[in-house]
């Protein structure tokens, strides 16, 4: 199950707008907002420390198998039939990818 999801996500991730090139990072003010947003609002399901809750751990060790684009796609589109909702209403694609990259390397405080 995990394998097929992974393959599917990889395929879709290739179509994610910025796959391949690096979009501009959000400005510093917005970055601070995004850090708060992830810690508070994603933290409601993934834990304030992002170590897991109703949703799985988002610590780097738990995300090793996913490239940032695949994570960005999950965040942008959500996962149907699970509580993970799509966040495109709140986050641009560039912001989503920035968050995914930060998650991969250990999310800032």
């Amino acid at each position: 199950m995990r394998k097929t999801t992974l393959a599917l996500v990889m395929k879709l991730a290739a179509s994610f707008a910025f796959a391949g090139e690096s979009p501009p990072a959000p400005p510093p003010d917005r970055q601070r907002e995004l850090v708060q947003f992830v810690r508070q609002d994603c933290g409601a399901c993934h834990g304030l420390g992002l170590a897991g809750g109703l949703g799985p751990s988002l610590l780097p060790s738990a995300l090793e198998q996913w490239p940032p684009e695949a994570l960005a796609l999950t965040i942008h589109e959500g996962r149907p039939d699970t509580p993970m909702p799509p966040w495109r209403r709140f986050l641009s694609e560039a912001e989503t990818l920035w968050i995914a990259q930060r998650l991969k390397e250990g999310f800032p405080r």
Partner: peptide, 12 residues
Amino acid sequence: GAHDEKMPVYKM
């Protein structure tokens, strides 16, 4: 909820 489409749930 059948009367309209379920929206994404951002908080349980």
